[in-house]
Design a protein around this nucleic acid. Sequence first.
DNA 1: GCATTAAGTAATCCATTGGATTACAATTTT
DNA 2: AAAATTGTAATCCAATGGATTACTTAATGC
Lengths: 94, 94
Amino acid sequence: MISAFDSIAQGLQEAIDLNNGKEVAAKTHRLESVDVAELRRNLGLTQMEFASKFCISVSTLRHWERGDRTPHGPALALLNVVAKEPQAVMRALA
Amino acid sequence: MISAFDSIAQGLQEAIDLNNGKEVAAKTHRLESVDVAELRRNLGLTQMEFASKFCISVSTLRHWERGDRTPHGPALALLNVVAKEPQAVMRALA
DNA sequence: GCATTAAGTAATCCATTGGATTACAATTTT
DNA sequence: AAAATTGTAATCCAATGGATTACTTAATGC
């Protein structure tokens, strides 16, 4: 849920860095926060099923859904992939 | 790099749990540890490129490759997906 | 309607990971 | 050989991931 402003500001900063010949691991530019509960409901899964299919612990998922924890780094990346290519992820983790 | 013995032992424990009507979020049964450096080399990427494409920090990746940190939970899941469906992940995170 | 089961909320604990940073070594490129 | 690139290593810190216990809400079966 990054705002358009934040996204542009980040994109601008990265362009500056690239101009400086400094390539950063630009992970935040393409990653969006994910409404995990909505994603899960859209997939028609219970928390247990989601956690099982995507190989995370159910307590972790619950923390995310309640909003008292925020997925970061690889967790956020995984969720973005789940959101965009759920079948591929399930295939890979079956 | 879980051994076959560990995998079977885990599978057995899970079968027992399912028999007890207790479904666990069975994340470890299908996840294998990943030789991250090998995976990266197989994809023909530098650390920076890999970190950028898969939206993790390069310092995280380096810790993994050196073995002083071990990806866990969502991170390990992500790496498993990268190992099995790299194109899908790259597509999703482009 | 009640008991049971399933699904989900919430709080707490702890280990360690993720990310950033600095310094340096090794490798590749010019 | 020098410069640039790539990768190793150590350190710091926040907070996450996972587990656990207790509880509430929703669904199911008799």
